[in-house]
C-alpha cells in the first residue's frame, strides 16, 4: 500500500467520522466545528487527487467563509451553546433507513461499476493554480461569468433581506401613508 493510499484511508475515515458527528451531535456549535474537520479532510483528499487549487479553495472558501457564515447564523439566532435535546426528531429511524438505503444503492453501484479500475495519479496533470486558471479562462469563461451574476445577486439578495428589518421595525404599526410622508420630509 502506497503512502497516498494510506493517507487517503486516514483522511477518508476522518471525513466520514466527523461527518457523522456533524449530523448527530446535539450541540449545534459542535456540529459546525466538526464540519470544519470534515471539510479539511476533504481538502486533503483533493490534494491527493491532483486537485491542488480545488483544495486551497476548499480551505479558503469552505472552511474560511462558509463555516464562519454558518456559525454566524447559529449565533445570531441565539443557538444555545450547550447540548440541545430537540435538534433531531423522532424520525431518526426512518431517516437512517433512507440514508442507509441511499448509501447501499450508491455504494454498490459505483463499487460494482468501477472494480478493477485503478486511479493512476502518476502522470496526471496536477490542477495547480496556474493550470486551473488557464483552463477556466480559456475553456470555462461562460460559466465563470454567469457565476459572477450569481454572486452579485446573492450579495444583493442577502443585503436586501437583511435591510427589510430596519425599515420594518422602526415604524411597525404605523399606517403606510404616515411613513411615506415622513420619509419625504426627511
Amino acid at each position: 500500500m502506497s503512502v497516498v493510499e494510506v493517507l487517503f484511508l486516514l483522511l477518508g475515515l476522518a471525513a466520514l467520522g466527523s461527518a457523522l458527528l456533524v449530523v448527530s451531535t446535539k450541540n449545534m456549535v459542535h456540529a459546525a466545528l466538526w464540519l470544519v474537520v470534515t471539510l479539511a479532510s476533504i481538502a486533503g483528499i483533493y490534494l491527493l487527487l491532483a486537485a491542488e487549487f480545488v483544495a486551497w479553495v476548499q480551505v479558503l472558501i469552505y472552511v474560511g467563509a462558509v463555516v464562519v457564515l454558518l456559525l454566524f447564523a447559529l449565533m445570531l439566532t441565539r443557538a444555545p451553546t450547550g447540548p440541545q435535546p430537540d435538534t433531531t426528531v423522532a424520525r431518526v429511524l426512518p431517516a437512517a433507513a433512507v440514508a442507509v438505503l441511499v448509501a447501499a444503492l450508491l455504494a454498490t453501484t459505483v463499487v460494482a461499476g468501477f472494480t478493477g479500475v485503478r486511479l493512476d495519479l502518476d502522470g496526471a496533470v496536477v490542477g495547480s493554480a496556474a493550470t486551473t486558471g488557464e483552463t477556466i479562462f480559456e475553456k470555462w469563461v461562460l460559466p465563470f461569468e454567469v457565476l459572477s451574476v450569481l454572486l452579485l445577486a446573492a450579495l444583493v439578495g442577502a443585503i436586501v433581506l437583511s435591510r427589510l428589518r430596519t425599515d420594518d421595525t422602526e415604524d411597525r404599526g404605523r399606517p403606510r401613508e404616515q411613513r411615506d410622508a415622513q420619509e419625504v420630509r426627511r
Partner: peptide
Amino acid sequence: VALEVVSLPAFAMAGLRRG
C-alpha cells in the same frame, strides 16, 4: 450555474415582503 442563477434571486424575492 445558470439554474442556480435562476433560483438564488428567487429565494430572496420570495422573502421580500416587509413584516
